[in-house]
């Protein structure tokens, strides 16, 4: 092959606007003569895609690393490539989000999968993907990708920890979603549990939660329970009842209430706070004590609840005992 003749023909074809012909000839030349700088430079001019243009210029720079023309052009192409990639990612994300919003989860999932295949460093795509796939194992994998891209994201880290903790306890996982206000995902999880439950009891439990979830979705603008309000609200009842009992015991005179009953009141307060706290398992206070899972672990919640009940009951028993001791002896 006479490369100099071929190169001239290719350049002539390029100048005459016959880009396809020039492109094919130049491809042939660089195949036989990979160190032909001019051929690479001309190829970058007539290449059809941005990627091919960049590849040609990169090859040219391997031959002549300081070629100012190639360097300047490559820089422009890189910028152009970045803009195009950004635009494409945005377009893909917009489409995926629209599909997700309209309930086309599978379609959103496939778009997102395409996105992460093409743009592996797209953190938002990984995050969105984790929210559209059903299998908790896959969710963990997607979240791990997102987390590796941004290890400083504490919210992401917390979410990943929770998912890892509950990926085998699907009912608790559903509860987590429900508490976060992600009703559709919670429902998916409960339905999966109901479909694959090994026992009638497990199925009944999942059905019960699905019914509760359906009731919650009837509430307009429901965005999850306010844990502080729930905790505070439910703490007050046993304390109020004990206070009234103690007041009655002292003949409506606080000064006549024995100091032991005052001290026992502290136990009621602590018990009430502990017991009511089990209704707000992901409150920040629990997260500070037990880590990001808070009281979401059923066994831990049971222990705390039982401790609360005992702390409440003991002072009541003491109070009733003291009151019984005052009953007239002739009654017995």
């Amino acid at each position: 092959m006479d490369t100099s003749t071929s190169l001239s023909t290719a350049i002539a074809a390029a100048r005459a606007g016959k880009r396809r012909e020039a492109h094919d000839l130049l491809r042939l030349i660089v195949k036989h003569q990979p160190s032909n700088l001019a051929a690479w430079l001309w190829l970058s001019d007539v290449a059809e895609t941005l990627d091919e243009q960049i590849a040609a210029l990169e090859s040219a720079l391997l031959i002549a690393p300081h070629n100012p023309q190639a360097m300047a052009r490559l820089e422009t192409l890189y910028a152009q490539q970045e803009t195009t990639a950004k635009e494409r990612q945005q377009e893909l994300m917009r489409t995926a989000e629209a599909a997700r919003r309209t309930g086309h989860t599978k379609e959103a999932q496939s778009i997102l999968l395409r996105t992460v295949e093409e743009f592996e460093n797209n953190q938002t795509a990984w995050l969105m993907l984790s929210e559209t796939i059903d299998d908790p194992q896959d969710q963990v994998a997607a979240l791990e990708h997102a987390f590796n891209l941004n290890p400083k994201n504490t919210r992401l880290k917390a979410r990943l920890t929770l998912l890892k903790r509950f990926k085998n306890d699907w009912l608790s996982l559903g509860d987590l979603y429900r508490d976060d206000g992600q009703m559709a995902r919670a429902r998916d999880v409960y339905f999966t549990v109901a479909a694959h439950a090994q026992s009638e009891l497990g199925r009944a439990e999942a059905d019960r939660r699905i019914a509760a979830l359906n009731r919650l979705t009837e509430i307009p603008d429901f965005k999850g329970f306010d844990p502080t309000l729930t905790w505070f609200r439910l703490s007050l009842a046993p304390i109020a009842l004990y206070s009234l009992f103690a007041l009655v015991f002292g003949g409506f005179d606080p000064a006549q209430i024995p100091s032991l009953l005052y001290a026992a009141g502290g136990s009621v307060v602590i018990g009430s706070v502990l017991l009511a706290g089990t209704a707000a398992p992901r409150h920040i206070v629990w997260q500070l004590i037990f880590g990001v899972v808070g009281l979401s672990v059923p066994a831990l919640r049971r222990i705390i609840g039982l401790t609360g009940i005992l702390l409440i009951l003991a002072p009541y028993i003491l109070l009733v005992n003291m009151a019984i001791a005052r009953l007239p002896s002739y009654l017995f």
């Binding site: 009992f245 009655v248 015991f249 003949g251 005179d253 003291m322 009151a323 019984i324 005052r326 007239p328």
Partner: peptide
């Protein structure tokens, strides 16, 4: 009940 020695609470 009004008496502090009473058996009001029970």
């Amino acid at each position: 009940m009004m008496s502090p020695d009473g058996w009001g609470a029970v």
